[in-house]
Design a protein around this nucleic acid. Structure first.
Lengths: 225, 225
DNA sequence: CACTGTAACGGCACTCCGTGCCACTGGACA
DNA sequence: TGTCCAGTGGCACGGAGTGCCGTTACAGTG
């Protein structure tokens, strides 16, 4: 007695397609008629799926705009996890930041739309702040694990993590304000190097403590996954 | 035909009393039976008011836990607005941070309860992140206005603002983890001074640009109020 | 090709949040 | 005493998010 129209989404490729359609529909509708004026029914209908299906793809209405943050967090964690032990800490941090930047740069068009939306809609702004918070926590935790034994290591980790995330956001905003074209990666790298000059990370950590804290951090990450 | 029982809240003192009762009820109920398991009806009933009245005191369910952030933001803005022009910038920033710290310290007991709640409940954690974001934006904006003409002033403002807020949070967490008693203010000050040593703010700004940007920042703040 | 298991889908019903509306009430003030 | 009026609370409504369940497409097996 249920719907008989052909439906996508039964295969992995189909699911990815439905997901894309939902994101596009959400961004377009939010932009065209406003966030509060758009219901989840509208988005689902525009993507050709049922309202219930929308909530199988996203945790909530807000998630449909920027669904790639989990991926960004995973990439950052991967950079830290796979970094060579002898690579300078600041280099690892900057590489992790550039990884996130590249994620935004991969699709400048929708990045602009999302930026405008997140800038204007309070609910989306708050959600973005929560995501930034998670990035900052991740950076800080990884840094703290690697600064064990350094004087005021935790404080340096907190300051450095917050600074890197703030610099990343500022680079992103400037890149988008300047048109969001071309050499964003280079501008971002230059930006980050300036931040590096401002930060105090030169002291050598205590390697035994680093090993212990990295283990703890790994366990903590596993517990959350 | 409406309720005939005596009601508070008709005078300013009465309103403050109702507000306190709602906060206490919310914190206690959230702690006792969980955030999701507590409805706004429960909170309102526990405080002896109607559900509709709850939403006249708070924007939403999340606001009942930490209703003092607007006050904190206002105090920070006030510190910046009333600071003597010759006071070193870093000193102003640290005083602003300590002002917020004092706000938490004024009631250590509920600060502990709130901390535990915010730590565990995702919705409250996200809301806290959004508030931290607003603090960071305020610090960054005020710093940027006062760093006009300095090389990479905006970047320094973003880094310094983020660092100060991060250091503040870390000091707060440590203070609460250590029992949340006694000389929190002193520990916080020492903490902040260490951060000061890590940050680059020694260059002299261009005073004309500073004046222009302070005016702009003031207009921006007025527009939001 | 027929059969079966499984995973995704869509509809339905439900709870709760947040809001507009409105009748009521207690206090202030002329 | 009569008149405002700010605060109150009930009511109803729309929308978010969730549990449940019957249905459907597809994969795998014989």
């Amino acid at each position: 007695m249920s719907n008989v129209t052909p439906r996508r989404g039964r295969s992995a490729a189909g699911r990815a397609e439905v997901r894309r359609d939902l994101v596009t529909a959400a961004v377009d509708l939010f932009t065209a008629q406003g966030y509060d004026e758009t219901t989840v029914d509208d988005i689902a209908a525009a993507a050709g799926v049922g309202r219930r299906t929308f909530f199988r793809y996203f945790k909530g209405k807000e998630d449909a705009v920027s669904p790639d943050h989990e991926l960004g967090l995973a990439r950052v964690a991967e950079v830290f996890a796979t970094a060579h032990p002898t690579e300078p800490l600041l280099s690892v941090v900057l590489r992790a930041g550039e990884t996130v930047f590249d994620l935004y740069l991969s699709d400048p068009g929708t990045a602009r739309k999302r930026f405008a939306l997140v800038h204007e809609v309070p609910a989306l702004r708050d959600r973005e702040a929560a995501m930034v918070h998670r990035y900052r926590r991740l950076f800080t935790r990884e840094l703290a694990a690697r600064l064990a034994g350094v004087e005021d290591g935790d404080l340096r980790a907190a300051v450095t993590g917050a600074a890197v995330v703030a610099a990343h956001n500022q680079a992103l905003r400037r890149w988008l304000a300047d048109g969001g074209t071309g050499e964003g990666t280079e501008a971002c790298r230059a930006h980050f190097r300036k931040v590096a000059d401002m930060l105090p990370l030169e002291q050598a950590p205590d390697l035994e403590q680093v090993a212990r804290r990295l283990e703890r951090a790994a366990r903590s990450l596993e517990r959350r996954a």
